[in-house]
Every structure is written in C-alpha cells, then in structure tokens.
Amino acid sequence: MSAHPSRAAGDAPVLSVRDLRIEFPLGVVVDGSSFDIARGQTMGLVGESGSGKSMTSLAIMGLLPKEATTTGSVRFHGDELLHRSDASMRRTRGDQIAMIFQDPLSSLNPYYTVGFQIAEAYRAHKGGTKAAAMRKAAEAMDRVRIPDAAGRVGHYPHQFSGGMRQRVMIAMALVCEPDLIIADEPTTALDVTVQAQILDLLADVQEMTQAAMLFITHDLAVVSQISDHVTVMRFGRTVEQGTAEQIFSNPDNDYTKALLAATPRLDDVVDLPEPILTKGGK
C-alpha cells in the first residue's frame, strides 16, 4: 500500500477538533476530544463500542440528535461547524465533507439504480443535467474499479456483491471531490480478502485526491494498514494519541497495550495439535 505524504510544517489542518464534548440527558458520551487532520493524511479513530468514536463523526457532520448538547470546536478549513444551521450543513455534507458508512445495503435505496443515486448526490451540490451527472457517476464508479462501470450504472444495489456495494458507496462519497472523507467502520461487514481490497482502494484514492480522512474502527489491525496518526478512545475520552508508528511500536497507555495484545498478528506462533496418523502413516 502506498505511503501517505507527511504533513509539511506550517500546513493548516483540513479538520481541527478541539475539546469536543457531547452530552445527552443520560450522560456524557464524548469528553474533551481533540485532534487535527492535514491534507492527504489519515487519522485512525479507534475504540470499542460505546467509546464515542461514531458520535464524534456525527458531530463533525452535524447529524447528532436534537437532544445532544455540544461544546468545544470543530473547524473545517478554519470555519466552525458546530451549531451551524441545518441548511448550511446540508450544503457542506456530501460536497466538501463526505461519509462512507458501515453497511452499504442499508445506506443505498433498493428502488433506484446505483448510477441514479450517485448522479443525484452530484446534482444536489453541483447542478447540471441528468445526463452529465450520470456520466460523472460512471466516472466515479470507474475510479473505484467497478468493472464495466458505464454498463453497471443501470444496476440496482441487490445486483452487486457486498464488496462492490461498498465500492459504490465510496464512488458516491468521491463524486463531488470532497476535502474530507469520514469512513465509519467501512470494512467491518466484509470478509478479510475484500476488506484488504477496500483498504488498498481507499489508500490509492486518497493518494490521488489528497483528501484528509477520518477512519473510524474498533480494529487496530485495520488502522495499522491505513492510518498516519491514531487516536485511541475509551468511555468517551482520548486515552492515547500519536503517530501510527509510535502507537504500534511503543504504546504508553495500558488500554492501548491491551488492544494491541488482543490483535492477531501474522507472525504469531500458533500451537497446532500433532497430526493423528492412521495405520501405515496415512
């Protein structure tokens, strides 16, 4: 997988989160989260279920439920996103900031072709004719390596495999050429082989577009393949932060160490039982 370019000194971050706190009537779900993501860089946001990582992404996208109270700052290219109007956030979502969800089958509408859905996402922000938008949809599908993209724009979600549906979701996220991509557990529902293909695709697409990426997952093995920097969350708090190399080679926090210890490694030694030999050694 291609290495991402390092952030140059003095580069302004695409996304800057400072002291983000998210509270519901029953309690605080994110408490003081802070991180930056530069152009062409990936931040891996890691934690088990309930750690607050998905709530962080929803706050960035302006999709938190109305009962949620937020404080702190979320700046995109220097502009504050928290407490923006719904109309303002709708103009930003899907255009400058795009999200790739975990389950493409529930995210895609089964009654419309994938080409129509990608084209409508494009027209919602960029305008243009239906024919021009459909050409953009085919180009986006071709970019994410869907074979015969021009022919498959007329296919429905159920006509694609799970891995190909996720490629459709990535095409939809990319069609407006966003500066920030939020990928929320995009490989969890896929088998290991397809998962590796999607990770390679995301890395290659990012290298081409130089978009910043927030990659959310519970799987440290996945984070190690795609992230430049890592933020580890537990119970809504950040417990450790650093470059991917620092986190994986010399973790400081006991929780991070426990997560790493529970992550399967290719070089792990597995004790296999002795083979049972039948008469004659067969």
Rank of each mutant, 00 (worst) to 15 (best):
V30T: 10
R21F: 03
I276Q: 09
F215N: 08
M61A: 07
R21A: 04
D179H: 13
T92Y: 00
I216C: 04
V223C: 15
E207H: 09
E139R: 09
D103F: 00
L214S: 05
F160H: 07
M99Y: 07
T42G: 04
G115F: 01
G154W: 07
D36P: 14
A87Q: 10
G162F: 06
T263E: 04
T69K: 15
Y112G: 02
P147I: 08
D252I: 15
K130H: 10
T92S: 02
V194R: 07
G10D: 11
R21W: 02
G128I: 13
G281D: 01
G50F: 06
D267M: 10
A258M: 15
L64Y: 11
I226A: 09
H4C: 09
H125M: 08
L45K: 02
G128S: 05
R135G: 12
A68D: 06
G32S: 15
V223W: 10
D36E: 14
V168W: 06
S51Y: 01
G162A: 08
F248I: 14
A171H: 03
R84V: 01
E23Y: 01
R75H: 10
Q206K: 14
A258K: 14
D179P: 07
R237C: 07
T263R: 10
K126R: 15
G10Q: 07
M233N: 03
I181D: 03
L277V: 08
E185W: 02
L266Y: 13
V114F: 13
T92A: 01
Y112P: 00
L259T: 00
L202W: 00
S51M: 03
Y111L: 14
G27Y: 07
R18W: 01
K130P: 02
A98G: 08
V144H: 06
L63Y: 14
D271F: 03
D31K: 05
N250H: 13
G50K: 08
T263W: 11
Q241I: 07
A173R: 00
L199P: 12
P25D: 11
L214P: 01
T42S: 11
E139N: 01
I97Q: 05
Q117I: 10
F35P: 07
P251S: 14
L81P: 06
V46Q: 03
A203I: 08
V194S: 08
S227W: 08
T231K: 10
G162R: 06
H4E: 03
R123Q: 13
Y255R: 12
A8Q: 11
A171F: 05
Q102A: 09
R145K: 15
G32L: 10
L202D: 00
V230E: 05
H4T: 11
D148I: 12
R39M: 09
A221M: 04
A119W: 09
L64F: 07
S73W: 04
Q102C: 04
S16E: 11
L260S: 11
V222P: 00
Q102F: 09
H125Y: 12
R75V: 06
T231S: 12
L105N: 02
L174I: 09
F76N: 02
I182G: 08
P147E: 13
S249C: 05
S106N: 06
S161F: 12
R90M: 05
L259V: 03
D191F: 13
H229W: 13
D268V: 07
N109W: 05
A262W: 04
D219K: 11
G10E: 03
R135V: 13
R123W: 00
F35R: 11
L220F: 13
F24T: 08
T187C: 11
S54P: 07
I22D: 00
D200L: 13
P5T: 03
V168H: 09
R237Q: 14
